[in-house]
Design a protein around this nucleic acid. Sequence first.
RNA 1: GCGGCGGUGGUCUAGUGGUAGGACCUGAGCCUUCCAAGCUCAUGGCCCGGGUUCAAAUCCCGGCCGCCGCACCA
Length: 578
Amino acid sequence: MSEGERLTELAKRRGFYFPAAGAYGGAAGFWTYGPQGAALKSNVEDAWRDRFVLQEGHQEISAPDVMPEAVFEASGHLDGFDDMIIECGECGATHRADHIVEDNTDIEEAESLPNEDVMDIIADHDIACPSCNASLAGEPVDNFNLMFATNIGPGTSSPGYLRPETAQGIFVEFPQLSEYARNQLPFGVAQIGKAYRNEISPRKSLVRVREFTQAELEHFVDPEEDEPPLADVEDVTLPLYSGESQQAADGGVEQLTVGEAVDEGVVTSDWVAYYLGVARDWYERIGIDMDRFRFRQHLPGELAHYAADCWDAEAEIDGDWIEITGFAYRGDYDLQKHAEHSGEDYTVFKQYDEPVTVERPTVDPDMSYLGPEFGGDAQSVADALEALAERDPEAFEGEDVTVEVDGEAYTVPVEETDFSVETVTENGEHVRPHVVEPSFGVGRLIYTMLAHAYTEDEVDGEERTYLDLPPEQAPTTVGVFPLMDKDGMAEYAREIASALREAGHSVTYDDSGAIGRRYRRQDEIGTPYCVTVDYESVEEDTVTVRERDSTEQKRVSIDGLAETIARLTEGETTFDDL
RNA sequence: GCGGCGGUGGUCUAGUGGUAGGACCUGAGCCUUCCAAGCUCAUGGCCCGGGUUCAAAUCCCGGCCGCCGCACCA
C-alpha cells in the first residue's frame, strides 16, 4: 500500500477527511473534514495566523466567495480561464483550439474569435490533431472555464463567479484596506478562506480538489524603499532547487541560508527570500519533515501571468513532490488592473520629508481655436501638446509648435497653447505598491503533515501506528482514562477531564474496553498525551501521564496538571523533565 | 476529458448465476491493577441505473466514485 493509500484509509477510519456526499455517489474533488480533520485544520490555520498575521503585524480580512464578473475581468481570470478546447475524435486528446489555429495559420490572438469561426478555420485549413494527425475538421470547439459560474440574484443579467483564489478579495478592496493601514506602506493583508476551481481531473485526495482552503498573505510594499527584516531570518537554511539547477544535468537542491541566497542572487527578491525563511521554520513547527522538503523555483515558462519570480514550497509524498505553498512576487499587476478597470485609485500617497518645489511646464490649449481648426482631432492634438510640454518644453520657444498625431503633423501657434512654466510645490507622490504573496494550500499542508507524521513501530511485540504530530497541531491534546470503570475511578477521571477542558485543553474521555486499546486509539489520531486514573490516583491525587511517541509514563500530581499539560504542549518543558 | 485497473458492513477482505462469510472496528455485558488480551451477545454490507436471465452482488452496457498514466493545473 502506498503512503497515500494508507493515509486515505486512516483518514476515513479515524475521521480526518473523506469524500463528500458519498450517499449520492459523491462528486470528485470535494472532501469533508471529519472531527479530527476539522480540528487539525483549525489548529493549522491558527498557527498560520499566529505566524503570518500576528507575528508580522499584518491584518486579516474575510471577503466573499462570490464576486461579480467585473472583478475577474480585471484580474485576468475570465480570459485566462476561458480556454477554447477541441477534442480529437480519433485519439481523444484535448487541445487548446486557439493555440492550434495560431500554430497552423497566420492568425494571431485566435482566442478573441468566436468559437464558430475557430471551428471554420480549423475545417478550412484541415488542421490535424497534433497527437495523432487525424483531421480535426468538424470537431466542436468548446469553452472550458475553470471558474465556477453562478448568477447573482434572479436572471442572468448579473453573472458572478466563485473565486479561484482568495487573493482577489484583497486586491479589489485595496483602497479601503489602505485606509485601515493609515495609508502607510508597507502593510500586509491576509485571508484564510475557500477558493474554487473546476478542475478537469481532481486527483490524490486532498491534493487536487475543486474546493479548497487557502491561507494567503498579500504584503504591499513600496518597491523603491521598503526592505524586509532579513536579519531576522538570515541564518535560516533553505533547501533551494533553483531554475538553473532544474535545467542543469547534475543540478540538485542546494542548502543555502537566506543571507547566502540573497547575496548570491539565487533568490532575486529580498521579500520572497524573507518569506521563504519565515515559512521554512513554520513548516517545521507544524511537523513537516524537513528531509522531505524543498523550495523549487518556477521555470520561466511556468510563471503565472502576474508573477515576476516565484518559488514553490514542495513536500515529498510517495516519491512525488506536492506544491504546498507558492511564493510569488506579483509586482503591481493586480492593483494596476483593478485601477484600470474600476477607475478607482489603487495607489498610496507617499509624503516627502520635505516638500519639493519643481518647475512644471503646462499648457492649456484654447479649444475654441483647436476645435474649428482640427475638428475631430482637436482633443488628440491638445493631449499631444500636453505630453510635449512635459517632455520637451523648449519646443514652445518659437512662434509655432508642431505635434504629431497618428503620423500626421499639426502645427499650432504657441500663443494658442497658453504655454507656461509654473512653479509648484509637491508634497509627495502616488505610489502603486508591489505585492509579495505567500499563498498556502491548507488542505495540502494537512495532507503533508499527516503523511509525514504517519509512523509505525512496535510496542511489546505489537505493531503500532501513530501520528507524531506536534502537540500544538494535534486535534486532541489529551486523552483521559479511568484504568477501569469501577471503584470511583471513572468519576474521578471525569472530573479531571472537565478540569482540563476548563483550562482550555482539547480533551477526549474514554472508558471503553482495555486500556491499551484506548492508548492506541489516541496514538492513531496523534494525541500527544494520555492521563490515566488508577487506584493510586483516588488515594493520593496523582495520575499517570503517558507520552505518545515513547509510550512512557510518569506519575504526576493532580495539582497543576492542566498547567503541566500546557507546558508540555507549548514546548516549555519536556516529558523527560517531569 | 481519454486510456488502464478497481468498487462486498466503519476498515481490510473471501466468495459463487440461486440475494453473502471472516477478521478488525464499534456498542452492551462479564472479566481485568496500564499498552489493540479473553468470553457472551449485538449493530452493520454486495456503488448507482439499465439489459440478459426463471433468477444478477456475480455476466453485459452506461453512469458515478477511487487509483495510475496522458492532457490540464491560468
